[in-house]
């Protein structure tokens, strides 16, 4: 599909120029973070007086950062697992029933991503502490994360189901397969790439989440974003924070690579998977 001729040369040049400019502005801060992790100076002085690997060594031995990283990975894995199970069941359940108030349900699904994160955060904080009388800790972080991770899985599953339609499953039933056999041999393989994409997104969201986490984490448990936020304003820790930030920027290429291998599914899911 070639570009329509009607967009004239001049406008194309303008669009190309604007696009290049914005992309430049988008990437300069990220490059700055990576360069700064080698900066000898403890502040953000530009240009850096000289470069060093010293801070990378210091960061590699920081127990606080390492422990926080571990907690983050554990929370993200658990929340993703819960979201995969519940998001898939919700997607499958909603398909079969054309019940009263479907629009209400679709609005309900948009709500956790359409409302500001801070509202979700203090709503859950309030529910855990004053309503349920729970101690904030590891478990409450996982539950909070799962709540918004479900949305991304659900969106991906829902989109896939609507595209495929019920005919394959009906064929399977006609050939004598029970509901579980049909799910195992027909439904699940159809959903597999959608689940991978949704799971990847859920993991990324959970790993990166800080607002809801701040309100649902106890004083003992720190995820990596919380650790960064707490050390950000300490001049002594700034170089270590720089290195951790640089690592996170570099790691962010991994899910993009994975997503490309899974075809374009994450593209559509990404827009709907806000904080």
């Amino acid at each position: 599909m070639n570009a329509p001729l009607i967009i004239d040369r001049r406008l194309k040049a303008v669009l190309r120029g604007l696009t290049g400019l914005v992309l430049l502005v988008v990437y300069v801060p990220l490059v700055l973070v990576v360069v700064n992790s080698f900066n000898v100076d403890r502040t953000f002085t530009w240009p850096p007086p000289s470069l060093t690997l010293h801070w990378w060594n210091v960061a590699a031995h920081s127990t606080g950062a390492r422990h926080a990283l571990l907690v983050s990975v554990e929370v993200a894995l658990l929340a993703t697992a819960i979201a995969l199970v519940l998001g898939t069941s919700a997607g499958l359940a909603l398909r079969r029933t054309r019940f009263f108030g479907r629009n209400v349900v679709s609005l309900l699904i948009i709500l956790p991503i359409a409302l500001p994160g801070i509202v979700t955060g203090i709503a859950l904080n309030n529910a855990f502490r004053t309503m349920l009388g729970l101690e904030l800790g590891f478990l409450t972080i996982v539950v909070a994360h799962a709540t918004f991770c479900i949305v991304t899985v659900f969106n991906n599953v829902q989109a896939r189901i609507q595209r495929l339609g019920p005919s394959l499953e009906q064929a399977s039933a006609d050939l004598g397969a029970g509901p579980f056999t049909t799910f195992r041999l027909v439904t699940f393989p159809m959903l597999r790439s959608a689940l991978l994409a949704g799971g990847l997104l859920a993991f990324g969201l959970s790993f990166d989440e800080i607002v809801v986490t701040t309100f649902t984490a106890g004083p003992q448990e720190q995820t990596l974003p919380i650790w960064i936020f707490q050390n950000l304003f300490r001049p002594n820790q700034a170089p270590v924070v720089n290195v951790v930030a640089a690592v996170l920027v570099l790691i962010s290429a991994v899910p993009i690579y994975l997503a490309q291998r899974l075809s374009g599914d994450v593209v559509s899911g990404g827009a709907a998977g806000a904080h």
Binding site: Y27, P29, L32, T45, D208, I210, P225, I228, L232
Partner: peptide, 23 residues
Amino acid sequence: LMPLWASYLVKAYAWRGMFSEGG
């Protein structure tokens, strides 16, 4: 998409570096 996957916190932090005195 790539900046979307980069940590939100890191991006805000990057702008702290951009706006800093002598940055």
